[in-house]
Design a protein around this nucleic acid. Structure first.
Lengths: 339, 339
DNA sequence: TTGTACGCGTTATCAT
DNA sequence: ATGATAACGCGTACAA
């Protein structure tokens, strides 16, 4: 029993294909009573329009793409993606859009993936995540002619459409919190400087310290991985004048750093205060629980999906208010030991 | 500049549509030299067949679906999904298949999602994950007529197509390892008993203990969340005769338990040995590093994709050998304190 | 409201 | 053996 087609419905309802199409899409030109009959028949037959037939005639795919690049290390917390997708889905599903996911190992294949998705007409638009500084993807996608929405803080230079929760306020709050606790040597374990969210977090840390009139603490660039977080922490603790607090660019590095500090016999937060970023699920269950920054990834996903659909439909952007990233204070931060 | 169509290519190459199609799909009936000319023209014009047109005429979607249910708590480690998808992708991309991802909040909407995907003809088959005991989804999908592949250990009862890495050997290895270290009171913090991978891990724990002639230790059912893991650990440590080792059904619970134990002043592994399951990235960076079980989720994803495509094409299964889950011994397990 | 062309490949039928 | 022709899959949209 193959799926029923619009013709089956039309025949059964005693009308033409066109009438069925109009009835389905709530277009005028069908008497209310006829419309009802058609819809009833459609329901009885269990008919749903074929996504492909529809796509073929409207030259729209009713789908959007998300390509995630997975290099050796974790760029963004996995939790972020699941939550983000979950939020985006709520909007997409409602609008009849599907989400096409692709995971690629390197930039070359990421570009290829975008090309293929566009050339095969599989998607109407894509999300672009984990933006690099001077990322070539927006240009590439513009050339391909595929609507693209950047997930992340809007780039200052060009008018690239973007939806993002600014990292800065979260990091700023963390630094201010530490300063209020009396810390004066506040270090930073940063994400890669070539990534937008690595750089912006570092910038926020640096600016907050300067604003407070403190001299900038040491900063070590890492790659968001636990491994690198531990190594960076080791290097910081080995300094002649080690910091009394470390602000990490993500939870993974912070938790690795926390463990390392404890292993070296330090008391956290007595000897060293630590803050993370992401509020991953284990963060609250570390010993001590990790002070960290959280943002509503689900709301973010929702807003991003709305914006991408607007982009696809060439509609003007509706104003979006995303709750800013905010600090969650837990046990890993405490008063600086008087020196 | 709209995308070129097969007609454009045919015209430019001076042949018919059919010839282009045959040339593209490596079908006989086209002279080698003509074929080359056609393919050259196609490349020059940058033509790729429209996925939708192709889908429409072959009544295949060239896509598979993955619906993930995200209830309040995390069922499977996020890392698992990303790795699994990454592995599946390598196969799917090669075969020209796309992966359609949907994240739903509850079973009702999960069923609806499957229905919609099938009715709209968006997918040719789906993966089914996080199987429940007596799960209704296989039956539902059978009724819908959508090829479905269960991701997880094959169900004993019915011949449901499944590709899975058996959890049991990993848990067995963990228990045996603890027994070898002299532990005799080995507890288990289990996943939900209504989930296949919760139940099978518990069964493996129980069987390994019995095999060693020990009396079964206490077992507390939790839900794979850090919160529940901490609560279960608390309950176990409050027993009159607390265990000297705890086997957790996943890393998240194990790490929360580890932190709780440390917070209560216990020495791990001196007073309490702990094992997890998943080998999440932070596991190795806990203090002490977590002994845990790992399985190759990427290979799993690859094997699953291969099998699902076979299912879709009604081909017989090729033999697949997946590396079994294995124990990674780290610092969270040690000799039982002589009592 | 209906009839019909159209979107774009695939494939069965025919002609050379 | 090569290749052309035409029907088909399923909705949408426009003219009638």
């Amino acid at each position: 029993m193959p799926r029923p087609t619009i013709n089956d419905v039309a025949r059964a309802a005693g009308v033409s294909k066109g009438a069925v199409s109009f009835a389905l899409n709530n277009k005028p030109g069908v008497a209310p009573e006829t419309r009802k009959r058609i819809l009833d028949v459609a329901r009885d037959l269990g008919w749903t329009p074929s996504a492909h037939a529809r796509a073929l005639s409207t030259s729209q795919a009713f789908a959007v793409g998300l390509v995630i690049m997975r290099p050796p290390e974790t760029l963004r917390s996995d939790k972020f993606f699941i939550s983000f997708i979950s939020g985006a889905e709520t909007v997409l599903a409602e609008e009849g859009f599907a989400l096409l996911l692709q995971v690629v190992p390197d930039p070359q294949r990421e570009h290829l993936a975008y090309r293929r998705l566009a050339e095969a007409g599989r998607v109407d638009g894509v999300f672009v995540t984990d933006l690099f500084v001077d990322d070539v993807r927006p240009a590439l996608l513009a050339e391909i002619g595929l609507p693209a929405l950047v997930i992340g803080p809007p780039q200052d230079d060009l008018g690239q459409p973007a939806v993002g929760i600014d990292d800065a306020p979260g990091i700023t709050a963390a630094v201010d919190h530490l300063i209020a606790l009396g810390h004066t040597r506040i270090a930073h374990v940063a994400g890669p400087d070539f990534m937008v969210h690595g750089r912006s977090r570092r910038g926020a840390w640096s600016a907050a310290i300067e604003r407070a009139g403190l001299r900038e603490g040491p900063c070590i660039e890492a790659d968001f991985s636990a491994e690198a977080g531990a190594a960076a922490t080791m290097a910081l603790l080995d300094l002649a004048d080690p910091p009394t607090a470390i602000v990490y660019a993500n939870d993974l590095m912070a938790m690795a750093g926390l463990s390392l500090a404890v292993a070296r016999g330090l008391d956290v937060p007595g000897d060293l205060s630590i803050t993370g970023y992401d509020d991953t699920e284990i963060a609250a269950h570390m010993q001590p629980p990790l002070t960290t920054v959280t943002s509503d990834a689900i709301a973010w996903g929702r807003a991003a999906a709305i914006r991408l659909l607007e982009l696809i439909r060439q509609e003007p952007p509706t104003a979006t208010v995303l709750p800013p990233a905010h600090l969650i204070i837990r046990g890993s931060t405490g008063p600086a030991r008087p020196s």
